[in-house]
Nucleic acid binder design. Structure first.
Length: 213
DNA sequence: ATCCCGAGGG
DNA sequence: CCCTCTGGAT
């Protein structure tokens, strides 16, 4: 069987085990998803949703965010961590969306990555979930799992994204990230995967490398 | 202690 | 390539 066929077989098995995998961030429009995704760095989605409930009430759109003070935004997002950097990026990002894109979040990778605080991971989350434009989201979970699966040997997120995009059909990209992340959280953890309870151990090249429980 | 759906700067 | 930024959860 070809490498891409094997990968697809494993992915389809995971899709059946995690059919409910989806973007767990709360948002009502592309701008709010962009904000929530920026806040999600090194923070759980549950915590982001707690913070954005109040944040979106006080500062509902890019215009309000662009006019807010650094101190106000810091206070609203403090518990998500990295709050100084995130506040600075959010305000600058909002100003860029207003001046460069007439207040609308752009729907292409190049424009998104040019925004303050937005890297390829965040850009692909917004493209896939707000605009239904396929993009491979390579975060820490996705990178760890696909390396364990032997789908790539690269440690560079952008290189991993490139190789995955070649290996998997475009139609799988959006859901695939959610599925891999769900499995990464539930089972294929860093640094010790729970191989004895893994539903796809038979399809994994490591075949249960972690023998402890 | 270690991890959480990273990005920017040196 | 490395470092820094940060609080919360377990």
């Amino acid at each position: 069987m070809k490498k891409s066929e094997k990968a697809l077989q494993l992915l389809q098995a995971l899709d059946e085990i995690y059919p409910q995998a989806h973007c767990a961030l709360n948002y009502q429009n592309p701008w709010q998803l962009l904000v929530a995704t920026i806040l999600s760095a090194q923070c759980t989605d549950v915590r982001v949703n707690i913070v954005t409930a109040e944040l979106f009430r006080v500062l509902p759109d890019a215009k309000a965010m662009a006019e807010a003070s650094q101190e106000q935004v810091e206070e609203l997002i403090r518990t998500t961590g990295f709050f100084r950097n995130k506040a600075k990026n959010l305000i600058h990002c909002a100003q860029q969306v207003l001046t460069l894109h007439q207040g609308e979040v752009p729907a292409d990778l190049k424009s998104l990555v040019a925004l303050s605080g937005v890297g390829r991971k965040t850009a692909n989350v917004v493209l896939g979930n707000a605009f239904q434009i396929p993009g491979m989201v390579v975060d820490t979970h996705v990178k760890r799992l696909v390396r364990r699966f032997g789908w790539t040997k690269s440690d560079n997120p952008e290189q991993v994204e490139k190789e995955l995009s070649k290996l998997l059909p475009e139609s799988t990209w959006i859901q695939c990230s959610h599925t891999l992340i769900a499995h990464g959280r539930a089972c294929c953890k860093a640094p010790t995967p729970i191989c004895s309870a893994c539903p796809v151990v038979a399809l994994c090249p490591r075949k249960g490398v972690n023998k402890s429980k």
